[in-house]
Computed example of a mutant assay.
Amino acid sequence: MPYQALVRLLGAATSAAATSAAASTPATRSGAAPADAPRLTARQTAVLTLMAEGHGNAVIARTLSCSEHTVKNVIYELMSRLQARNRAHAVACAVRHSLI
């Protein structure tokens, strides 16, 4: 699924949930990541963005001029930091938290 379509779908779903939860939690209107969102490094953000576009580890490694082993390590750290079960869940969490 294209990244832009994923963002639109998740944005529509989260905006509906945010509307219902707005009364109980303060909203961030600056467009930045919410205060409870995990912080990512520049490399983690780059890897996550390429993952969201559907690229595999080899393509990500070539694009970022690093080894596939490095990409695997970055993805492992991302999965842990975002508490994600798989790559799709990691992308969804990142979009939900406005990290990408």
Score class of each variant (00 low, 15 high):
residue 94 A to S: 13
residue 83 Q to M: 07
residue 40 L to M: 03
residue 11 G to F: 12
residue 11 G to V: 09
residue 35 A to D: 09
residue 95 V to Y: 10
residue 10 L to D: 13
residue 84 A to N: 04
residue 80 S to Q: 12
residue 63 T to E: 01
residue 77 E to G: 05
residue 42 A to S: 10
residue 79 M to V: 07
residue 89 H to R: 01
residue 70 T to E: 14
residue 51 M to H: 00
residue 77 E to M: 06
residue 37 A to F: 04
residue 97 H to K: 11
residue 20 S to F: 11
residue 75 I to H: 00
residue 82 L to A: 04
residue 48 L to T: 01
residue 41 T to S: 14
residue 3 Y to E: 14
residue 90 A to I: 03
residue 58 A to G: 00
residue 86 N to V: 08
residue 14 T to H: 07
residue 63 T to D: 01
residue 84 A to W: 09
residue 46 A to C: 03
residue 6 L to E: 14
residue 36 D to Q: 11
residue 20 S to H: 11
residue 7 V to L: 13
residue 41 T to L: 06
residue 13 A to M: 07
residue 23 A to N: 09
residue 62 R to I: 06
residue 91 V to G: 10
residue 73 N to H: 07
residue 96 R to V: 03
residue 13 A to Q: 10
residue 21 A to F: 02
residue 19 T to S: 08
residue 99 L to Q: 01
residue 74 V to L: 00
residue 17 A to D: 09
residue 66 C to V: 14
residue 83 Q to L: 11
residue 3 Y to P: 05
residue 38 P to S: 05
residue 69 H to P: 02
residue 53 E to S: 12
residue 43 R to H: 03
residue 34 P to G: 04
residue 54 G to K: 03
residue 65 S to E: 13
residue 85 R to Q: 12
residue 52 A to T: 12
residue 16 A to P: 04
residue 2 P to F: 09
residue 46 A to M: 08
residue 17 A to F: 03
residue 56 G to L: 05
residue 63 T to P: 01
residue 58 A to M: 10
residue 77 E to T: 07
residue 69 H to E: 12
residue 11 G to Y: 12
residue 35 A to K: 02
residue 43 R to E: 12
residue 45 T to I: 09
residue 30 S to E: 11
residue 100 I to H: 10
residue 20 S to N: 09
residue 91 V to W: 04
residue 31 G to E: 03
residue 48 L to S: 00
residue 91 V to C: 13
residue 39 R to M: 05
residue 83 Q to P: 00
residue 46 A to D: 15
residue 2 P to V: 15
residue 5 A to D: 15
residue 29 R to A: 15
residue 65 S to Q: 14
residue 60 I to Y: 04
residue 16 A to D: 03
residue 91 V to A: 15
residue 48 L to N: 01
residue 40 L to H: 02
residue 2 P to R: 14
residue 13 A to H: 06
residue 83 Q to G: 03
residue 19 T to M: 08
residue 50 L to V: 05
residue 90 A to P: 14
residue 19 T to Q: 12
residue 16 A to R: 00
residue 38 P to D: 08
residue 53 E to R: 13
residue 64 L to C: 13
residue 75 I to Y: 02
residue 58 A to T: 10
residue 66 C to M: 15
residue 82 L to V: 11
residue 75 I to N: 00
residue 73 N to W: 05
residue 22 A to P: 04
residue 26 P to D: 07
residue 44 Q to L: 01
residue 88 A to V: 08
residue 4 Q to N: 09
residue 13 A to G: 06
residue 35 A to E: 04
residue 8 R to T: 07
residue 82 L to R: 08
residue 54 G to F: 02
residue 69 H to C: 06
residue 89 H to M: 09
residue 97 H to T: 05
residue 87 R to K: 15
residue 2 P to E: 14
residue 39 R to Y: 05
residue 13 A to D: 09
residue 76 Y to K: 00
residue 5 A to W: 00
residue 65 S to L: 08
residue 52 A to M: 15
residue 87 R to E: 13
residue 33 A to F: 05
residue 27 A to L: 04
residue 38 P to C: 07
residue 25 T to G: 02
residue 2 P to W: 13
residue 38 P to V: 05
residue 34 P to S: 01
residue 1 M to C: 10
residue 88 A to S: 13
residue 28 T to G: 06
residue 9 L to F: 12
residue 45 T to F: 02
residue 53 E to N: 11
residue 58 A to C: 03
residue 62 R to V: 08
residue 18 A to F: 06
residue 57 N to I: 12
